[in-house]
Design a protein around this nucleic acid. Structure first.
Length: 268
DNA sequence: AAAACCTCCAACCGCCCACTC
DNA sequence: GGAGTGGGCGGTTGGAGGTTT
């Protein structure tokens, strides 16, 4: 089943938005709120596609958008979340107040992605402690490394396409044996991998048994506000996982195990 | 000074999923 | 259950502005 275009493209403006268009969009949304994007341009008197209006609003005009340089802390968080989630920019953006998925995506593509590639090329050489860094994730990162050393330190991106679930929370399955498992495009690893800052703690020598495991909580996280985010991770994931043998109790506080997320040079 | 090249990012595009009828 | 719609997502592009030659 194809999908009809969101609007007729004939006679519509394209390209950069003018100040007047911005003003029209802002005043309309202030008056009537977001949503109904398809009808919005007509009602607001804009010669734009509804999608274009939505994008303009979400990425640029929204009052809560934080513009300007991405701080070091934000950058670290992006890197960690990218290692956890892959190119799921909206999810990553959701953890960075005021930042949009587009902005983060651009930042990654222009800055962090390049750094990651440079890092990866360094890692091609025999690995040393200082080069056992992640930042490894662009789409090709799911490929198993030929180097066994590399596989120990490299975070595999699960997949690049976000999947939404509306109402179900995927619960962890019993972890299988310890070898790596490939489930279609899913590669699992043995490495501990977790986030700092109490954001979450995924695993420590923990294996996931199924693709559902990877998607655990994603839908909930997409809906969650900041408080719920931590709650979901800690209560639903950490709690369940700690029930499994193999997850050490001090996983969340073992900073050494996190060093690979920042590069070991960043840690004492 | 200007041409060539590079970088950044706003915007577009096509695809997908959830929801409704 | 299938078709249609609304909304959201990630990938890609194009142009403006900056830098180098």
């Amino acid at each position: 089943m194809g999908r009809s275009p969101c609007c007729s493209k004939e006679g519509l403006n394209k390209g950069a938005w003018t100040a007047l268009e911005d003003k029209l969009l802002i005043s309309y949304i202030k008056a009537y709120g977001e949503g109904k994007w398809r009808n919005l341009p007509k009602r607001a008197g804009l010669k734009r596609c509804g999608k274009s209006c939505r994008l303009r609003w979400l990425n640029y005009l929204r009052p809560d958008i934080k513009r300007g340089n991405i701080s070091h802390d934000e950058e670290e968080l992006i890197i960690r979340l990218h290692n956890l989630l892959g190119n799921r920019w909206s999810l990553i953006a959701g953890r960075l107040p005021g930042r949009t998925d587009n902005e983060i995506k651009n930042y990654w593509n222009t800055t962090l992605g390049k750094r990651a590639k440079a890092q990866a090329s360094i890692n091609e050489a025999p690995p040393s402690k200082s080069t056992q860094n992640i930042l490894s994730t662009e789409s090709g990162a799911t490929e198993p490394s030929s180097s066994s050393q590399a596989t120990k330190t490299k975070i595999e991106v699960i997949r690049t396409r976000a999947t939404r679930y509306s109402s179900q929370v995927m619960v962890p399955l019993q972890p299988p044996a310890t070898q790596d498992i490939d489930v279609t495009n899913l590669t699992l690893r043995q490495d501990p991998f977790e986030l700092r800052d109490d954001q979450c703690c995924l695993t420590n020598d923990q294996e996931m048994g199924d693709a559902e495991m990877v998607d655990f909580g994603i839908s909930e996280l997409m809906k969650a506000n900041d408080e719920e985010f931590e709650e979901l991770f800690h209560e639903a994931m950490l709690k369940d996982w700690t029930a499994n043998p193999g997850l050490s109790n001090n996983a969340a506080t073992d900073l050494d195990s996190l060093a690979f997320l920042l590069g070991s040079d960043d840690w004492p």
